[in-house]
Amino acid sequence: MRKTFIKTLSEISRDNEDIYIVCGDAGFGVFEDFKKEKPDRFINTGVAEANMIGYSAGLAITGFNVFVYNIIPFLLYRCYEQVRNDICYQRLPVTLVGIGSGVTYAPAGMTHYSVEDIALCRSLPNLSIISPIDPIETKAAIEYAVEYNGPLFIRLAKSGELVIRKDESMDITVPHVISEGEDVAIISYGSIFSEALHAVNILKNEGIEPALISLPMIKPINEEAIFDIINGFRAVIILEEHLRYGGLVSILADLFIERGIGARFIPLTLPDAFIHDVNRQAGMRRKYGIDAEGVARTVRSVITDKSQGYLLQNR
């Protein structure tokens, strides 16, 4: 995802003088070529995140299309008020490109996890959120960001994510059915999507076919499209590498309640707790039941226990 991000942005910036990259002392191995090519369109403002964001807002006021790159906690948490007041409140064209979604960096420790970022960002007016599942969605997200004229958070993992989407010329703002199915639908976003995909492949061998939906743009959510897609499913499993509250589960719950639509949600998330376990990302996902096996187990139990959930009511 990191490579796709810089490759896409570098290509676009060859004939776009307004693109400017700001990093907060991160990006070793990412920006070397860009710095050479466009030395006056890149700055490392150091380990000083509040200033990094305020400065980016200022650049945006002078007409630059600013991309800020950092590890998510140092992109959003340390400087939340700057993001809120300087970028979102003033609706400035700044794209916040964050890496290390979820527990990508495990076992780095809680300081380096970004497991409440969706909760923080969803509450900020004017801020859009895109969390790609793979390099193809990442490319589409960056292209969208260049055109979009407002505050945007792009939530990336790190590197080595496999290609999942086949449709390069997609509309990143709509949810997309990756795998057709019935009875149970799985919705996910971000790099953990690969676990859901793996689960679907395991289940296919058992004759179970849940639907699998990618939802890259979490805010604003394309409400009509999401209702159309999940209408008729008995239960919806929401898989996210995020703490239990404030993420996609909460976002969809809000939406369904508001519309008076009954639906059975099964949240597969990290717990409502600080994480002290020493495990790598794969082990951590396994421990909290949000890996492929956990998803498959959940689908099986929903399929066999018909009391779990009920048909979604039409609007």
Partner: peptide, 15 residues
């Protein structure tokens, strides 16, 4: 930094 180990890569006072 080992699986189910005790010491994370950054400091946790409960470790």
């Amino acid at each position: 930094m080992q699986e189910d180990g005790t010491l994370p890569a950054h400091l946790d006072r409960f470790s």
